[in-house]
Amino acid sequence: MGHWWQRNIIEPGKLPLLLALTSFVLTFMITRVITRMIRAGKGPFRNIDSGGVHIHHVVPGVVLTVTGGFGAVASGRHGVGPALCAVLFGVGVGLMLDEFALILHLDDVYWTEQGRKSVEMVVLTAALVGLVLCGFLPFGVNDLDEEELEGRGSAILGVALNFFFALLALSKGKARIALFGAIVPFLAVIGAIRLARPGSPWAKRFYGRRPRARAKSRLRAYHHDRRWAGPRRRIQDWIGGAPDELPEPSRTPERH
């Protein structure tokens, strides 16, 4: 175990990244537990208000992220500084992304349907950082051997191709595949060759005069969303808590 730790974590300099990822995930988990307890009216935790203004935890998250980021730049690569800054950065990002939906909508949508975006962003971030920690590098650089890396032309070509496929997948409305494809190249290729989703820039540009392709795209998107929407929502509810149910619209009696 000690040999594996030294070879895979310490020597490549991945300890700060591991500390940042761990503190990020733990902060999100602890924050969600506390907010769910506050929502249920259990435990000693309460919302923080100052002068009638509710202080969201994205505020200390911004402070910790800025402190950890600038501290990492200024601390160099030796000593306990990088590790401490990595923990501060991970905690700050965990607090910030837990309220990502509030930043996106500029509204308190934490326990609404729009608030699911926070959970999705946290999961995506943790997965992407986890891939980097496991040795995957953006745009397929990890697939190049030492000789190819020494030749700048091969390295640039590999990065350009992977970036092109990821961009193509993004234009087809496959944002998640494009993000992961930037790190795992074959995912970008899969996203680039599959049908575009309805309403995506690719579909609007190339399916406008192709009714068969347009109908096939809608049908595939419908079956995909129907198959995966339910499980995805249940996982999000399990991680972050179910959103509040919207009240049924009141019906006014018709006047005759």
Rank of each mutant, 00 (worst) to 15 (best):
V33T: 03
L137A: 14
P16V: 01
T22P: 00
E147T: 15
W228V: 10
M37A: 07
W5T: 07
W228C: 10
L168G: 10
L19Q: 02
I55Q: 02
R227Q: 11
V25Q: 04
G2Y: 03
G191P: 01
N162M: 10
K42Q: 07
W4S: 15
D108Y: 02
H3N: 15
A86S: 05
A188C: 09
L21Q: 07
G81R: 14
H78L: 08
V87Q: 00
V63H: 06
A192P: 01
T35S: 10
N47W: 15
V87R: 01
R212W: 04
W111E: 02
D244E: 07
I177P: 03
C85N: 08
E113T: 06
V141H: 01
C134L: 14
L64R: 02
R32V: 08
L133E: 04
V53Y: 09
W4M: 12
G241E: 08
W111L: 06
D237Y: 10
H54E: 12
V141E: 02
N47Q: 12
V53N: 03
E147F: 15
D107P: 06
G135V: 09
R220H: 08
W5G: 12
H256S: 11
R205V: 11
A166S: 14
F164Q: 11
Q236Y: 14
R251N: 13
D108C: 08
V63G: 06
D244T: 02
G69S: 15
E148H: 10
F180K: 03
F180N: 08
A101H: 02
I177H: 05
L26K: 08
Y222A: 09
A175D: 02
S50H: 15
V119S: 08
T22C: 03
P198E: 13
F180G: 14
I193N: 14
R205S: 15
A229R: 15
T252E: 13
P60Y: 03
E245K: 11
D237Q: 14
T125C: 15
V25L: 03
M29G: 09
I183E: 00
I34M: 03
L131M: 08
H105E: 12
R77A: 12
L19G: 03
M121G: 05
G92R: 00
S75D: 13
I48R: 10
R233S: 09
S250M: 06
P231I: 07
L97F: 03
R226L: 10
G2E: 05
R116M: 08
G81D: 13
G13P: 11
W111Y: 05
A169C: 09
L149F: 14
T125I: 04
K174F: 06
H105K: 14
Y110P: 00
P44H: 05
A83L: 13
G68W: 06
I190Q: 07
S118G: 10
G90H: 01
R152G: 07
V129K: 05
E113H: 04
L187N: 05
M29I: 13
S118V: 03
M1I: 08
G69V: 12
A126E: 11
F139T: 00
A182R: 00
K174Q: 10
G173L: 08
Q6W: 13
H256V: 13
Q6C: 15
M96A: 07
G199R: 07
L19R: 04
R214W: 00
S171C: 09
R176T: 13
L97E: 05
N162S: 13
L167G: 12
I55D: 04
H223T: 14
G240N: 02
H105C: 11
N47D: 14
A127S: 13
I10N: 14
A196Y: 04
R234G: 02
R255K: 12
A178C: 13
L17P: 01
A72D: 09
